[in-house]
Write a protein that binds this DNA or RNA. Structure first.
Lengths: 390, 390
DNA sequence: AGAGCAATTGTAAAGGATTACATCGCTGTC
DNA sequence: GACAGCGATGTAATCCTTTACAATTGCTCT
């Protein structure tokens, strides 16, 4: 037998990959032997043709039955069904996709799976897909908008039917690849691109309004904020929403009570240290995400400021951790399950040639736990002018 | 034009799906029109044939270049490469998989993506796959071993090349489907099935040994344990490992100091309440996972038992939350990134016809944070006989 | 009974890549 | 100068479904 170019290349790959595996205690077997083992003794491939033969019909009829086309006689359907069951035949998805041009796979791109914000979103998306017998291919950009390019390209190469880009930052360039390939896309909360691409908006302001209602009802007037970096547009959006809510409640914005963190625990801690150093101090602080709220909690604790007795803290997102820290964190819940559902629905519509232009925004809601309480004593609103503007 | 059966069926599906979408503000367009829009004005499909023509070679040569087969003249390679780039051609993965029989997709099945234990594992697995240009299809069983069946079947239907079953509970029946279909599988820490299937074991005992070393060094002798339910074999394994470690350090097992929880925060809290009610109390408690350790922390706090001053607590897993609670939790880190890497490597080997029988077990290690300290005062070992057995 | 028509079923052509095998030029040797 | 041998490339079969179109069947109606 000739040693052919093809086999040579394959052999090379095998060797390379084996070398990569160093730790396990393993041994190579006769490669050809074990391969034929895996294929089994099956002399005939398990075709639609085999099924057809068994049911004594043509492949076309089998296909029709399997795809639920009307116009096949009852009795024939039954015969085919039985043959399929007996041989437990599953159609080859590649052949099918090749012919039909659809894969029944959706891409899901998130920023970072280690960010506790995302699992619920992924979970919700996957549940919906699963119900529709759609498979989910997923990756993350690790917050790098440039990596989005790669992610999208990979998905297009796999010819997914549609892509949900659920990252906080989006590089428009990357989206064009998808458009060029004719793959529908949906974004999460990207107002700037909403005109060009379907988008699922979240109205941060609604959440902050509820949070402020709650704090004001408790008697707070001096409210600080822990913002995220200006480079993240979700963070900017949240800060603006906070300010707007503040004003619409007739309080004015004190810039010294706005500290900035990195959206992580560490950043929340240092931001809170700054706020604690203010004189006068705010009596309540809202953080633009829960991780920073947790950091804030730690800083307060370190400074022997008791939460919620001396200071109220509200987070944003309602990640699982929020309920686990001490005290359990009151927080504005980001409706990410609903976001996932909307995104999924959008994609399905896009695939049907329906154009989705204006999604009504989803509303975050306050979840009250134990990190909020009335301010100490009878605290006069020292600074807030308290004029009711709106 | 005849109204054919096929189109009728499709129309039905479209209608059904549209009805499912209720909330978004959307309007249907001329369906046929928008579909042809999506396909674009492209009169010729973007084949390998087009590339071949452009490069003035045959499709075979293009394929050879693309797959890095040796024996193509330098100049030809360049010409093909250029043509590919100019037309930015990407091969159709379905056609390729159809022909080759491999999809370069791995399945990854976990218990629950909302469980903070898993994201890192998924992340690690995905990173490795991505580096090998393998795509990951993933789903979760939601702790229901019966759902594993469905998960595996779905993956087989998608003809993934291999499946990593990273759930704590495994239904052997389900695995047989994979075996029957010739799809390699790898399990996580399933000793019982290790003989039949490749398995990545984790040696819990090593972690507990380190934890006990640490506690003993601090002066603790009275050590309690929060176990998981007997129905979970990972929980049973951890309890056994704890007992073994205790004995090998010459301490004896006091059953009243072993409480059982549900592996969640709530269960940890109630378990700890029981331990706190003991007289005498243990001076240190190890929980079989971090979530229960967090619950334990809460219970201690509620009972005004200060951690680590009055009580030391050690968790297991090292989920992100462990570092965020107060005090930051000392915990035994489950090497899940390494597990993912091992699993991935195993699958690749299996695909190459290499049989992996005995994977050396991975070792968890103690991560010391702030939930452990010496016991209060000069605490005599009231109960532990302290005979050095081993 | 036979025409006409609808309901079923069959035949065979895509769909896009990989690859066994054939072919074509060369070079080097006898 | 013929031919073996080798390197580079081309031809065409193949992977498995779906589906347009053709063919057949079965029924109704006159």
């Amino acid at each position: 037998m000739l040693f052919r170019a093809g086999s040579a290349a394959r052999a090379y790959n095998v060797a390379k990959n084996q070398a990569a595996f160093t730790e396990a205690n393993c041994h190579a077997e006769n490669c050809a032997g074990s391969q034929s083992d895996r294929k089994g003794p099956a002399p005939v491939a398990m075709d639609i043709l085999q099924v057809a033969k068994r049911a004594k019909v043509s492949t076309a009829t089998v296909s029709r039955v399997l795809n639920g086309f009307p116009g096949v006689r009852e009795a024939t359907v039954a015969r085919v069904r039985r043959a399929v069951a007996e041989m437990n035949y599953v159609p080859n998805p590649n052949a099918r996709s090749l012919r039909v041009g659809r894969t029944r796979m959706f891409g899901l791109i998130i920023s970072d799976i280690n960010n506790p914000f995302f699992p619920e979103l992924v979970d919700a998306f996957e549940a919906l897909a699963s119900a529709e017998k759609i498979e989910v291919l997923f990756t993350h950009t690790n917050y790098d908008p440039r990596r989005l390019h790669n992610c999208i390209r990979r998905m297009i190469e796999r010819s997914v039917d549609a892509i949900a880009v659920m990252t906080s930052e989006v590089d428009e360039q990357a989206l064009q690849d998808a458009t060029k390939a004719g793959v529908p896309v949906v974004l999460m909360n990207q107002r700037k691109l909403a005109a060009k691409y379907p988008n699922v908006p979240v109205e941060y302001a609604a959440g902050f309004r509820e949070a402020l209602d709650h704090l004001l009802a408790l008697g707070h007037r001096d409210i600080g904020f822990i913002a995220g970096p200006e480079t993240l547009n979700s963070a900017v959006g949240r800060k603006e929403a906070f300010k707007t809510a503040l004003r619409s409640h007739g309080l004015h914005v004190r810039t010294e009570w706005i500290a900035t963190g990195d959206m992580r625990v560490e950043g929340g801690r240092t931001a809170m240290e700054k706020l604690l150093a203010c004189n006068p101090r705010p009596t309540a602080v809202i953080a633009s995400n829960d991780l920073m709220a947790v950091g804030a909690l730690q800083a307060a604790h370190a400074a022997h400021v008791s939460v919620p007795k001396h200071l109220s803290i509200i987070g944003f997102d309602d990640i699982p951790i929020a309920a686990m820290v001490h005290p359990p964190l009151s927080t504005i819940r980001h409706p990410r399950r609903e976001v996932a559902a909307r995104a999924f629905a959008c994609l399905q519509l896009s695939l049907q040639g329906v154009k989705v232009d204006a999604n009504p925004p989803l509303q975050p809601h306050l979840v009250i736990r134990n990190s909020t309480a009335p301010p100490l004593g009878v605290k006069r609103a020292r600074s807030g002018k308290h004029q009711v503007t709106s």
